[in-house]
Write a protein that binds this DNA or RNA. Structure first.
Lengths: 107, 107
DNA sequence: AGTTTCCATAACCTTGGAGTTATAGATGAG
DNA sequence: CTCATCTATAACTCCAAGGTTATGGAAACT
C-alpha cells in the first residue's frame, strides 16, 4: 500500500522535482512555462514532476485560460516535520532515560 | 554533483530503508541479524540499505566480534529540519499554515 | 583442526521512474 | 476560420536501484 508519507518522501527525493518545489516556495505561484524556462528539462518532464508534487499534496494548480498556475502548499510539509521531530525525540528520549539511569546509579 | 541533501532525501525515500531507520530510532542500537529478522527482506538487502543510510550519515556502525551494531545519528536530520523550515518560511502567503508548521517544529 | 554463524560484497535480474519526442486538446491571437 | 501557443498525455528508451541467490572472509563454537 502507498501511504501519504511514502508519497511525500518519494516526491521530495528527486532533485529536479525538489528544485521546482523550492522555486515555488521562494518565488510564489508560477506557470508551467515559467518553470520550464529554467528547469533544465523539457516541458513534459516539468508537467510530470508537477503532477507528482500535486499527488503528494505539495502544490495546488489553478487554470487560467490556456495556462496552469502552480503554487506551493506548505501545509503538506506538516507530516515531514512531525516525522523528523518524532525520530529525534525517540532517540533523545532514550538518551534522557540513559542519563536518568546513570544519575540513579550514582546515588 | 551529489549534494549531502540529495543523499539524505534519497536515503529516506525508500519505505524499507526508512522503516529500518525508524526502528533504530525507536529501539536503539541493533545488529544486522536483529534488523533482518523482521525487515521483510533478505539479509543482503538489509546490509545494502544500512550502507545507504550510513552514506547519508543517518546511522553509525560498530563492530563487535562477528556482528555489526547499527545506531541512529539523529544529528543527520538537521538539514532536513532546516530545509522544511526554510520552505515554510519562504512562503509568506499563508500564515496559518506557516504558524501551524512552525509550532509543530518548535516542540 | 573443521564447522557454523554473521555480515558484506558480487553477480545478476527486474522494475520503477525520469528523460525524451510526438501529439492531442484547449485557448488566444490575427 | 486559421494559426500559433500552452499544457497534459501517450509512447518509448534507458538507467538507477531494490530485490534475489551465491559466495567470501572473519569470528565463535566443538
Amino acid at each position: 500500500m502507498e501511504t501519504q508519507t511514502d508519497l511525500l518522501f518519494r516526491a521530495l527525493a528527486d532533485p529536479t522535482r525538489r528544485s521546482l518545489f523550492e522555486r515555488l516556495c521562494r518565488e510564489g505561484e508560477q506557470t508551467v512555462g515559467a518553470l520550464t524556462a529554467t528547469a533544465g528539462v523539457s516541458q513534459p518532464a516539468v508537467s510530470k514532476h508537477l503532477a507528482a508534487l500535486k499527488a503528494a499534496g505539495l502544490v495546488a494548480d489553478r487554470h487560467e485560460g490556456r495556462q496552469t498556475h502552480y503554487s506551493p502548499r506548505t501545509a503538506a510539509l506538516g507530516p515531514l516535520a512531525d516525522w523528523t521531530k518524532d525520530m529525534a525525540q525517540f532517540w533523545e528520549g532514550r538518551f534522557d532515560a540513559l542519563e536518568d539511569l546513570l544519575s540513579r546509579m550514582d546515588q
